[in-house]
């Protein structure tokens, strides 16, 4: 049994006029099937409006399915009795770093989750220390979040989730508002948590470079999973990705172009080294 199991998941946003009559139905998730095993690093790719954020909010029980089921660590998200257990087990990091930090001091923000869970004071401090250390933000514990860079703020947000001791973290486009350095910092922190603490990671993004090291990749479009596989398999389908408003890393794109020009180059090249080796064989 996976830690996140989606079966035939449907979510519809219904807009109503002033009298309560249905004005329009927008299908955000359209019979989505997806399965994540504990300890995996999963990436969900998709353009803006593909339904990936709606899906993320379901895993955290912030939204409930219109149809179908979603099981998180053995608990059904539709069951209201489990909402807080689910939120504790599957923590969520959002896109905008400013709008998810509640306190004016870093360590107090990290303590917010455990406080809500009713963790005894002494243990809160232990958890805060551990989680800030795990994302490399311990020395900033007394700082105001306003003085931090975007990447640092996102790492504080991740620590805030870690302090709730989740089994799984969902990151909803955590790097979309960051500069290249911030992106690297956040990804590094997330990979470290996955490897060292065994936390299951579900990374939602539209940056292709970020999924290269994932264990498995899902591509979403119009509320459905349209492609899935390991990163190499996904990246070998350059044309299909472009149809879904995505692109591939520059080296993969170049390899694809060269192949289209008639060179015998294998599909799914990810690194410069691989391309150079393939080119060397041609001579």
């Amino acid at each position: 049994m996976g830690i996140v199991e989606a079966k035939n998941l449907v979510h519809e946003y219904i807009t109503r006029d002033e009298e309560g009559n249905v004005e329009g139905i927008q299908v955000a998730l359209d019979h989505l099937d997806l399965s994540v095993k504990p300890g995996q690093f999963i990436a969900v790719l998709g353009h803006n409006g593909s339904g990936k954020s709606t899906f993320a909010k379901h895993i955290n029980a912030l939204l409930t399915p219109t149809e179908g089921t979603l099981i998180v660590d053995g608990l059904d998200v539709s069951d209201e009795n489990h909402v807080y257990d689910i939120r504790q087990r599957a923590g969520m990091v959002f896109q905008n770093p400013d709008n998810q930090i509640i306190a004016s001091v870093v360590q107090e923000d990290v303590g917010f989750g455990p406080e809500n869970l009713g963790v005894p004071t002494e243990q809160i401090w232990e958890r805060v220390e551990q989680s800030l250390k795990s994302v490399g933000m311990w020395k900033y514990r007394e700082h105001s979040p306003n003085k931090l860079s975007g990447g640092q703020k996102q790492r504080v947000a991740i620590a805030g989730v870690m302090a709730m001791e989740p089994k799984c973290i969902i990151l909803d486009e955590p790097t979309a508002m960051l500069d290249p350095d911030g992106r690297k910092e956040v990804l590094h922190a997330v990979h470290k948590l996955n490897k060292e603490k065994g936390v299951t990671i579900i990374l939602i993004t539209h940056y292709m470079e970020e999924v290269v090291d994932a264990d498995y990749v899902y591509v979403m479009d119009q509320g459905k999973v349209v492609m899935e596989g390991n990163p190499r398999g996904i990246f070998s389908q350059v044309d299909a990705l472009q149809e879904h408003r995505l692109d591939v890393p520059q080296i993969t794109a170049l390899a694809h172009e060269l192949k289209n020009s008639g060179l015998p180059i294998p599909d799914g090249i990810l690194t410069r080294q691989e391309l150079i080796e393939a080119l060397a064989k041609i001579k």
Partner: peptide, 10 residues
Amino acid sequence: TAGLDPKGRD
């Protein structure tokens, strides 16, 4: 292009 997806950026 901050925050846009690849197609939107292009």
